[in-house]
C-alpha cells in the first residue's frame, strides 16, 4: 500500500514529505507505547500513534520506519516535524481515532505484525 493510499483512506493531512507519498508501506504498527514499537515493530512499517513527542520520531528512526501517522487530530509540534524532516520521513495527521484508523487500513489489506510472543522477537536469524 502506498502512503498516498493511506492518506486517502484516513482522510489525513500531509504534514511533511508530500514528495514521498509514492513510497510503499508494508505493514501497520499502532501504539501509544513506544516501548512496544521498539520491541515489535518491523522495518518499512507505517506507525500510527496518538503520542506526540520527539521520541516517536527517534523510535521510528531506530526501527527503520519512514512513515508516521498521528491519530485523533494530534498535531506534532515544530521540533518533531524538524526531526522527522531530517530523517527523511513522511508525517500524516488524521482526525480519526486510533481504532478507526487501524480498522480502515486493515480492511483495505494492510496487515499487522501478526501473533506476538512477548519473550521473543523474530527479526533475527
Amino acid at each position: 500500500m502506498t502512503i498516498k493510499e493511506v492518506k486517502e483512506m484516513l482522510e489525513a493531512e500531509v504534514i511533511i514529505g508530500s514528495e514521498n507519498l509514492k513510497r510503499e508501506v508494508k505493514i501497520g504498527c499502532a501504539a501509544d507505547l513506544m516501548s512496544d514499537i521498539l520491541a515489535f515493530a518491523k522495518p518499512g512499517a507505517i506507525l500510527l500513534t496518538g503520542l506526540t513527542n520527539t521520541q516517536v520520531v527517534r523510535t521510528a528512526d531506530v526501527m527503520d520506519i519512514k512513515a508516521i501517522c498521528f491519530v485523533r487530530g494530534k498535531r506534532p509540534d515544530k521540533k518533531i516535524v524538524e526531526l522527522a524532516r531530517n530523517n527523511d520521513m513522511v508525517i500524516l495527521m488524521t482526525h480519526l481515532p486510533m481504532f478507526e484508523s487501524c480498522g480502515r487500513l486493515y480492511k483495505q489489506g494492510l496487515l499487522g505484525v501478526g501473533y506476538l510472543d512477548i519473550s521473543k522477537r523474530d527479526d533475527r536469524r
Binding site: 507505547l33 512496544d36 520491541a39 503520542l51 513527542n53 516517536v56 519473550s119
Partner: peptide, 16 residues
Amino acid sequence: ELGFGAGMGLLNIKNC
C-alpha cells in the same frame, strides 16, 4: 505518560 517504561526494555535488549 511519555510512552515508555512498559517493562520491556531489558528483555528487548536481550532479544536483540
